[in-house]
Simulated assay, not measured.
Amino acid sequence: MDTFFSKAILDFCIAFGVVFGGSMLAGIGSVFVFAPPAAMMIDTASRLKIWALVAAVGGTIDPMRVIESNMIEGHFSPVAQQIGFMICAFLGAHMGTELIRWLCKGAV
């Protein structure tokens, strides 16, 4: 159970970091091309959300394969773990997006 929580926390932080870091760097880059940074950051955060989820859970189709193979065999514990990892990654990506929206709310 300890490894579940450590991986879930890592998935959350990875997804959060992808969205937050990518959006911050997009804001910096938008200054160089004379685009509005806040609008660019919000747009980038929204577009990075799904990719942050994919990056956090492994970047491949393997988590879906684990769910499928274990579901067919009737082993529901690994299925629940993978779904839990995906939920934690989604929460991290969503929290990163909401933080960017909160930081940029007065500028847009």
Rank of each mutant, 00 (worst) to 15 (best):
V54T: 03
M41K: 06
F32V: 02
P36N: 14
M95H: 14
F90N: 11
W102I: 06
A8P: 07
L48G: 00
M1Y: 04
A80W: 00
D62A: 15
L25Y: 00
S69P: 02
L10I: 10
L25C: 02
G96Q: 11
A38V: 08
E98P: 09
P36I: 13
F34I: 04
P36T: 12
H94Y: 09
F32T: 05
T60C: 05
A39H: 08
A55I: 00
S30C: 07
A15Y: 10
T3P: 05
V108I: 15
K49G: 00
T3R: 12
P78G: 02
P78K: 06
G21S: 12
A26W: 03
I72W: 05
F5E: 10
I72L: 09
F32W: 06
V31G: 14
G22M: 01
L10Y: 06
E98A: 10
S23I: 05
Q81R: 13
S6M: 15
R65K: 15
I83H: 00
I50Y: 01
A107R: 12
F34Q: 14
M41Q: 08
G22L: 01
I83T: 01
M86W: 04
I87K: 06
L10H: 10
G58W: 09
F90K: 07
R101G: 08
D43L: 07
E68V: 13
A8I: 08
V31C: 12
F12T: 03
H94M: 13
E98G: 08
L10N: 11
E98K: 12
F90C: 11
P78F: 01
G29T: 01
K49R: 05
R101A: 13
E73M: 03
A15E: 10
G106A: 06
S77P: 03
M86G: 13
G21K: 08
V79R: 00
D2P: 05
A52Y: 00
M86R: 03
G96R: 01
V57W: 03
G84P: 01
M95N: 15
I9E: 12
T44Y: 01
G92R: 02
I28E: 04
A56S: 10
L91P: 14
A8V: 04
K7N: 13
F90A: 15
I50R: 00
G29H: 02
C13W: 07
M86Q: 10
